[in-house]
Design a protein around this nucleic acid. Structure first.
Lengths: 173, 173
DNA sequence: CAAATGTCAGTTTTACTGAGATTA
DNA sequence: CTAATCTCAGTAGAACTGACATTT
């Protein structure tokens, strides 16, 4: 992090926005809060990923693959699940392959498709990164667990509403 | 958005994480929720920005500058406030200058510094983009206002805790 | 002198478009 | 035949490092 500022930088911004009469202040504020929280948390966890030779995109693919039965997953699923362009997956998997962490193998039943499969080194590294991040509580150690649960619930509604997924299950709401 | 999935993709992920015994499930879940919400909301507002010839980085600089008295702001403030690298600001301002939306002028008192100043076109475009985004409620029209307030409050605590800013004001907490 | 401001050159990474080979 | 899966070539943009000139 750069030097912390002595006030929440969103505050004067919201004031100006309101004074300008653009409307939707609250939505604008929420948007800004999500953007900035993502940035801060990313920066906070970046050093750990870097110490394992990873960045966020590669970590996402690695951890995603680690959790599949047989630790392999089709490229197309990665693209959809991670909400990134198919060529970006190609690129990311290229790097992971260069690092010896994954390999591409033919899909067992669909001959168009390839699945990404962890190597032993990949499984090992993925496990160690996950533990390292958990060890630091993902930079969220100072937040009460009830607050985290509330946050997850609120963001779930936003994500559902924005069309990320489509279940109507209100059990966590 | 790609096709929505029929369940929250975080759910099976959390299950796997828990089963693996890595720890900090709740913090991991919150981290994932923030990352994914940011991604979804970004995608949702991207088309509007694009229709004005902007992307998020350029929008941030433009709107930041629009809200300064005299609509000008030092480059260094942009770097700190937006949490981006100084060379990224240089790059972003280069593009905005090419688009005729801002100009660099010498800082009145510090001869090392430059301030970014909106052109008339820049002020006009900034205003129109802001109104367009507000018109769409930043993609958050479906969320209750109380929920948004709660979300902003929770994220504020996370951002403060992560060192983005440093005020001890608990008035919103 | 050290620190801050901004730029430059060069590198890496990301993400896109458009095309194409292959298979369902 | 259409649609899906993935790759490739090329492009544009973002973000970093390290070095540098200038000024505080």
């Amino acid at each position: 992090m750069p030097d912390p500022i002595a006030f929440d930088p969103i505050d004067p911004f919201v004031e100006s926005w309101t004074a300008a009469g653009f409307g939707a202040e609250l939505q604008m504020t929420a948007m800004a809060a999500v953007m900035r929280a993502q940035r801060v948390l990313t920066i906070r966890n970046e050093a750990t990923l870097r110490s394992f030779g990873l960045n966020r995109a590669r970590y996402d693919v690695l951890i995603m693959t680690l959790f599949r039965p047989g630790t392999s997953v089709p490229m197309s699923r990665l693209s959809g699940w991670l909400m990134v362009h198919p060529t970006s997956v190609t690129n990311t998997v290229d790097r992971l392959e260069e690092q010896g962490l994954v390999r591409r193998v033919p899909h067992p039943s669909d001959r168009r498709a390839l699945v990404v499969e962890l190597t032993d080194a990949g499984r090992d590294l993925g496990t160690r990164v996950a533990k390292a991040l958990a060890e630091e509580s993902f930079g969220l150690a100072g937040i009460a667990e009830d607050d985290l649960r509330e946050l997850v619930d609120l963001l779930r509604r936003i994500r559902r509403d924005a069309g990320e997924f489509d279940d109507g299950d209100p059990s966590l709401g």
